[in-house]
Nucleic acid binder design. Sequence first.
DNA 1: GAGTCAATTAATATCGATATTTTATATGAG
DNA 2: CTCATATAAAATATCGATATTAATTGACTC
Lengths: 220, 220
Amino acid sequence: MMNDPRGKDASATHGAYLAIREKILTGDLPAGQKLKIERLREMLNTGASPVREALSLLTSDLLVERIDQRGFRAAPANKANFEEILTLRCVLEDMALRRSIERSTRTWEDRLVLAHHHMTRATDQGTAAFEEAHKTFHMTLLDNASLAMLERYCSQLYDLNIRYRYLAARGAGYRRRDVSGEHRAILDAALEGDADRASARLLDHYRLTGDYLVAELDDL
Amino acid sequence: MMNDPRGKDASATHGAYLAIREKILTGDLPAGQKLKIERLREMLNTGASPVREALSLLTSDLLVERIDQRGFRAAPANKANFEEILTLRCVLEDMALRRSIERSTRTWEDRLVLAHHHMTRATDQGTAAFEEAHKTFHMTLLDNASLAMLERYCSQLYDLNIRYRYLAARGAGYRRRDVSGEHRAILDAALEGDADRASARLLDHYRLTGDYLVAELDDL
DNA sequence: GAGTCAATTAATATCGATATTTTATATGAG
DNA sequence: CTCATATAAAATATCGATATTAATTGACTC
């Protein structure tokens, strides 16, 4: 009955949440598209209630819009939106990273080193694995700030950004630049407790990727 | 069948959303409390589906937490959370206000003056009316930035803050300070296009209220 | 008596069917 | 031919009942 590749069989709602989320992020469900319950229901082999609830939850993530009495649609994507995401990320991650470094501990340093190492290892293991390790690294940079809402916003913005990467190049070619060198530079600065340098490197990292993406997104 | 005081009879979900939201903001449903479907269902005279969906939507607003397979609870409230809200508001509203002023137009100025005027008028008409006019004024200050997500975050944070006002003083006594003078000062600076002064006044406004609230919240 | 495990209770999550509302289609008047 | 209006089709929203899962209670061992 449950032919989900992953072993975990949490609730049907959670399964639907993950599946729909993935489809939106990768562009399988294009931005702006109407999301009909019935269609999703049969795509995911589940009932209407879980689908509906999953969509409500995706609303929190700004990946789905809901209009009362007329259903759900995948959040629209456009250049202005992308630029807003970039701006907000720069401001919020700057704040979070500085505070993380300020409160640095050995434990955090350890987690950071590990997250970075796992990311370098994951380059071989397919994009999905790398994607996850990459996010973990970036979130670890921020999580020592111990500001739950700020973390949540950053995580949200990170995810929204993924979608634009897929839009620009269908996910391929992301590692074209010397991304691993940039990661290394951020890590080193953070470990040394140099907040200014770490933040500068992190923001460069985003702005470089951002410029690259903007170039591909002219048509939107 | 619909004995809702307000004439509007949108969806049952929307009605439940507004009702539960109100109860959480005012403390009628205390922070951290388990929210059982059955209980809410009978409180609101509606079915389980609308309640469930309303709770999912309130999750977006960070007013409700959802744990898979074990239901919903009102988001917890504590001093650290309050301080995080205050910090984030200061950073985000500063950004939004500056950009609003930067892009100032006659139309926006007009809307601002009107929103301010309506707020001063609403002081007589009960807290609910004032509450709404107050939020409209603050959001109008920001909305000329035309950054949809930023606005959303600010609106969210504004609402979360309301709850702490109720927690500190059960909603009363908010207008004790010279709040109207502070509003006036923000308005004037914004109209003159003086972003630095406007931002300084706005942040003072929040920090003053913040300090007042923190004093009352020691126990949390 | 403290802790573990089974049986019971309570709550959540899900299904399938129905009612409501919106959207699309077609019909007729000006 | 355009616009408005009524009709038909499709989709959303809601209900009531059931299946699953978590929390509680109580019996039993050590």
